[in-house]
Design a protein around this nucleic acid. Structure first.
Lengths: 244, 244
DNA sequence: AAACAATCAATTGTCTGACAATTAATTGTT
DNA sequence: AACAATTAATTGTCAGACAATTGATTGTTT
């Protein structure tokens, strides 16, 4: 007779407990802002020590699923995940992926501009007056000749994040602006001469004008030019290999 | 004289330690696969107890930044983050965001098809024979009349994930196929009649043919039809409100 | 010498019990 | 009624112990 292999648990207790609670949250058995039982009670229920429960809770806290508050009315509460927090996570994960997996600069540029382009038609339709104002504010900053390269780059990233969010679709804005911001460290490696900055700011202004006129085709055209310009800068930056 | 407010530490020790180690990893001071000091040594260095160090390590492990191995040559090692793991995280975060923030079905559909569309031109250029084979395999499954609604839906999701990754850009494929997969629970709420399934499979086949012919325009056209079809199903599914 | 078994040592996983810190609620005092 | 002190519940941290795992070492047998 064949042996019935029990589903052996290689995972430690704290991992199992974390997974159990995570499942409860994801499946909606624990509502947002609901309070979990106290650590001592969880320990009793799961039949483990408090230290083990705490390690499980720390895991969940690291994923922003819960937060712990001290005091008499304290405890662990289910977090409402916000777009901003989630985007921060996405950005830092993307940056790690790029850093650890030797993503070529060209691939990153391609991904970023491809995704941004997909937002343009929607942004042209739905951009608000606030969006336009935010875009113009960034363009204004970019014309400042005393701006450091890093600040210029940060402004550039903000500009394109606003474009992504101007699509009016939070899900789309979250992912695309995340992709744009994830690229910031790579963009910081580029060197902008004064003429480059002027050209880029000009393109940004033209793009803003096109969005104001709800002219998606022109906006797309300007974005293509920006992509080409960025690729050119990336090529220039490339150090010649010393394969002697 | 103005009081010099010390940077008060509301964060607990374990959080601070986790952040310190995370920074070391992100900044590259700890290389991939490098071994961290043992828990006891970390506890000594930071001047805290082993339990506190362990909670910090659990946080990092929850973010896939490190893993812990037992045994003589064990310890905590810096993880190489893989695209698949990162995508799993992205998908589960997206699903939580959608669930907790009452994203309308239409917004989710719009985001998903918008992002997928941005991959199409690249996919038409770069699709491999393997990609085409994978696409055709899914279409074949979708023609099976005995398939459950859930399995049909899962195949549909896999089909579009392959399209996203056929763009040949890992960064783009990661984000777009993540977006597609994040939608699966929502798509599972749709009801497919037999005729719907046939129409969808037909569109999938036509899209595959277009990609094979490197015809991005036709592929885009078919994707637009799929989007329209999905929107129609979503509309039908909507239960009439009983606002009596 | 090679193969195998037993032991050892390092490390993480878990438990127990204790105390500190924080904070809401309660109680007491004016 | 307003304010102060106490209390109770809860998380945060600590110290020390033992179990479980696993690579390395050592010893034994063939």
């Amino acid at each position: 007779m064949a042996i019935e292999y029990q589903a052996i648990r290689k995972e430690g207790l704290s991992t199992q407990i974390a997974n159990a609670i995570r499942k409860a949250i994801v499946d909606g058995h624990l509502a947002v802002e609901e309070k979990l039982p106290s650590e001592t009670e969880l320990a009793d229920r799961f039949g483990v020590s408090r230290a083990t429960v705490r390690e499980a809770l720390k895991r969940l806290a690291a994923q922003n699923l819960i937060r712990s508050e001290r005091g008499a009315a304290g405890g662990a509460f289910v977090n409402r995940i916000t777009w901003d927090e989630a985007q921060d996570d996405l950005v830092s994960t993307c940056r790690l992926l790029i850093g650890m997996n030797d993503i070529p600069l060209e691939d990153a540029i391609e991904a970023r501009f491809t995704m941004e382009a997909s937002c343009l038609p929607l942004a042209a339709q739905r951009r608000t007056a606030d969006d336009l104002a935010a875009l113009r504010a960034e363009v204004y900053k970019q014309r400042d000749k005393d701006l450091s390269d890093e600040d210029f780059c940060a402004s550039d990233v903000r500009f394109h994040s606003v474009v992504a969010r101007a699509s009016g679709n939070p899900l789309l804005g979250f992912q695309v602006s995340g992709a744009v911001e994830a690229m910031q460290p790579l963009m910081n490696m580029l060197v902008y001469r004064l003429r480059d900055r002027e050209s880029i700011a000009d393109l940004h202004k033209a793009m803003t004008d096109a969005l104001e006129a709800r002219d998606a085709v022109t906006a797309q055209h300007k974005l293509d030019q920006l992509a080409a310009y960025t690729r050119k800068l990336a090529d220039l930056r490339r150090v010649p290999r010393d394969d002697g």
